[in-house]
Design a protein around this nucleic acid. Sequence first.
DNA 1: AGCGTCAGGGCAACCGTTTTCCTGATTTTC
DNA 2: GAAAATCAGGAAAACGGTTGCCCTGACGCT
Lengths: 347, 347
Amino acid sequence: MEETLGNIVRPSTISEVAALAGVSTGTASKALNGRGSLRPETRLRVQQAAEQLGFVANAAARSLHSGRTYTVGMITTDSIGRFSIPLMIGAEDALGAGQMSVFLCDARDDPIREQYYVRTLLSRKVDGIIVTGRRTQARTPISADLPVPVVYAFISSSDPQDCSVVPDEADGARRAIQHLLAIGRRRIVHVTGPEHHHSVTVRATAAAETLAAEGLEPASTTLYGEWSEAWGRQAAGILLSTGADIDAVFCGSDQIARGVAEGLREAGRDIPRDVALVGFDNWDVMVQGSRPALTSIDMDLEGIGRTAAELLLAAVNGDPVHGQRALPCRLVPRASTAVPADPGPRK
Amino acid sequence: MEETLGNIVRPSTISEVAALAGVSTGTASKALNGRGSLRPETRLRVQQAAEQLGFVANAAARSLHSGRTYTVGMITTDSIGRFSIPLMIGAEDALGAGQMSVFLCDARDDPIREQYYVRTLLSRKVDGIIVTGRRTQARTPISADLPVPVVYAFISSSDPQDCSVVPDEADGARRAIQHLLAIGRRRIVHVTGPEHHHSVTVRATAAAETLAAEGLEPASTTLYGEWSEAWGRQAAGILLSTGADIDAVFCGSDQIARGVAEGLREAGRDIPRDVALVGFDNWDVMVQGSRPALTSIDMDLEGIGRTAAELLLAAVNGDPVHGQRALPCRLVPRASTAVPADPGPRK
DNA sequence: AGCGTCAGGGCAACCGTTTTCCTGATTTTC
DNA sequence: GAAAATCAGGAAAACGGTTGCCCTGACGCT
């Protein structure tokens, strides 16, 4: 019953298949690929011979002839990490559906390794390259004038002509603020990561503008720090000690938000009744681990990976897309912004 | 200055290099590969021509002749996740150093996808396959009688003849208990994941045996639940409500440990003074986010990935290794088991 | 001067597959 | 019934690179 591939021991070639079926290799090729004009009976005979031998066409030989490898390279510039994974999954998804295989290259933020990988990928004649990674800023292109298309995913290229797919972080920040406004909060503050990080300024600016559009001002000056729970706790302390009158915090990451949540909770503030909380990243382990579960902005990394792969496929097929494409974010509401049905007295 | 690969536009072939250098293609090949006997001057001339044209040998053509592709497939059976990443990094590390490229395949726990990927990898004539993934039990082999070597990493094959590299989880549990004993704890309890999970029983058994070897009994019956912070908090509640007299908890995961830490802390127990805590996985975000920072068992996933890759390379080179190899764990001490210098009064 | 030796490098086969061109054989058409 | 059209399948070139074999010419030796 369970034969699967158990009969493949030594890989067989098409000439062996042809010999077994009593035809020439050319005919065998046509039979297996549905080309040429063959008697149905012959075609069948070849197919059965191929089946019997467990024949799988040698991709190298095939690509040598066709010039295409149905293979792409994926270079992660920083190490494979939390952000790269969904990107890779999304890309692998779209590419796998297109029968493409993916070469994985982890450049670890080392330009030498990166150039080495680019050379390797070119020698393997990949049909295209996807570059992913996390950076504080747009990155320099991996190389000028490559013979294959390149798409940047999540990270963006500093050359505006290059094709980049990135999250619309301003959109994400806007959604966060608008959600807080929609549940009636007005005294909102932003706690986020290091100021030199591009994402940080984009999000902070968009948040401020969204408030301003409603005629509101931040309830306190934006707090910049690092991407950690510890900073979130510290920030909560700062907010409490300055006695700022706030009813919502929009955080630059879920980790920060979780820290803020802990800090506020331990000071006796109820979330979401006293202070509503919105995070950023929608990182499952953080949003679920937080108490209460955290409303967060999802950048749809998987979608970004998928889109990047689709654009790459399009470019490979002769329809290159240039410039940067920003994909909208999504707000995932959870308990940290759930307005209590009945305000009631504090317990 | 910054030429890098800017001159490669259309990939050039060795015959173009040969023509430019004024030699035959065979000679050019020998010059570039250090074969045959050539005048140093000729060799240099060819090398310069290759440089000038940005020549990179077509890997497909080369492998067609040599039969080797310097390529391996890596199949993750469950989705790419927290466990797969370090494994992949480790494997990629060892393989990259051996000039091998890695095909990434995410089978998503779908046997159909998995078989599809196996076929694809075989058609691409990979030199070997690494299978990784997380499972509650050993898995059935991906396929019988493959023409290339296979190594299982982290996950193990149910066929004892197959080569598997796994963490020695019993060793990890032993180290955890011994560490707790070493800092003077005697009333130890184990809080862990679902009982049907193979890892859970292995760790629990080893923990119990280590205690027994010291003539001790668990301070409470082992608590089985799920791999979540919520379960950790719940377990803390159970321990507190039953009034069990404990001075240490060994947890089956860092998430559980973090939950336990929160639960105990909120009940006024001091960690590590009243209760010491050891987690499992050494997952950075958990051990750092916990308060206090969590002592944990590191399974050295990267080392497992690296070892698996090395064994695969050995097999490819004709030295196959059979059977299961268990790598020791490592205890990483942090504040949650740091014995206070001065017991002093509680604050 | 003639022969042997060896370095240098060209030639061609080969890897496995696809595809074009071509040849017989069969069928259709007038 | 003969010419034309169609069909089935074979032969061979091509993809790009490597390598064993062989040829050529220069040099050294007697």
